[in-house]
């Protein structure tokens, strides 16, 4: 849910990184945090377990440039990927304007990807969001691994809507900003389309 503040001429949007456990959602945010100019970012907050697995969410606020005089803020969230944190994932999708689905390219994670995508769609419905209408991009992460599934197979399994998709190696930053810029553009276009 976008928050447009005419008094302050600000547009605030919420983006959520969703995907199965250990697919690289937090790594995406860590790379963005590392690379974005200090003046454009707030603190990266990670609610994680002692073993650095996301417990509730990661949060990174970005205060980007302006579009036609409206200062643009994106609040980036990740969900906890582990199966038993389902209730938390549902809460974090509340009010999302856009979602990045981060898929793990490894063959042995295909089932987890498919399950996670189905869960996401159900949780969006639970939050009153039409999963076929929300701005969504797919990131195929871990493309550098030997057991990575070919892109066309991933596409067949996960991208029936023919959504924008990106290959990524998040720890090296490959594909991270391409993905973020794509979802940012979709969200802003959606906001404009509705007006």
């Amino acid at each position: 849910m976008s928050f447009i503040n005419y008094a302050a001429r600000e547009i605030n949007c919420k983006l959520v990184y969703y995907g199965p456990g250990l697919c690289g959602k937090t790594t995406n945010l860590q790379h963005i945090y590392k690379k974005v100019d200090p003046g454009m970012k707030g603190k990266l907050i990670s609610l994680a377990t002692e073993s650095e697995r996301t417990l509730f969410f990661d949060f990174l606020p970005l205060e980007l440039g302006a579009i036609r005089g409206f200062k643009t803020r994106f609040h980036l969230y990740t969900v906890p990927g582990q199966i038993f944190y389902e209730a938390s994932r549902r809460l974090i999708l509340k009010g999302a304007d856009g979602v990045v689905f981060v898929a793990d390219s490894q063959l042995e994670r295909m089932e987890a990807n498919i399950q996670s995508l189905a869960d996401m769609q159900q949780h969006l419905v639970d939050q009153g969001i039409d999963p076929d209408k929300i701005s969504l991009v797919i990131q195929y992460n871990k493309r550098d691994l030997k057991n990575a599934v070919p892109i066309d197979e991933l596409q067949k399994a996960l991208n029936s809507r023919n959504l924008p998709w990106f290959e990524a190696v998040a720890p090296q930053g490959i594909g991270v900003f391409e993905t973020l810029k794509a979802i940012a553009k979709l969200v802003m276009q959606e906001l404009q389309k509705k007006t």
């Binding site: 690379k35 100019d37 980007l64 440039g65 579009i67 900003f177 810029k181 802003m188």
Partner: peptide, 10 residues
């Protein structure tokens, strides 16, 4: 370009 500009040199 608008989107690129949002991110500065990011």
């Amino acid at each position: 370009d608008d989107v690129e500009n949002l991110f500065g040199k990011g």
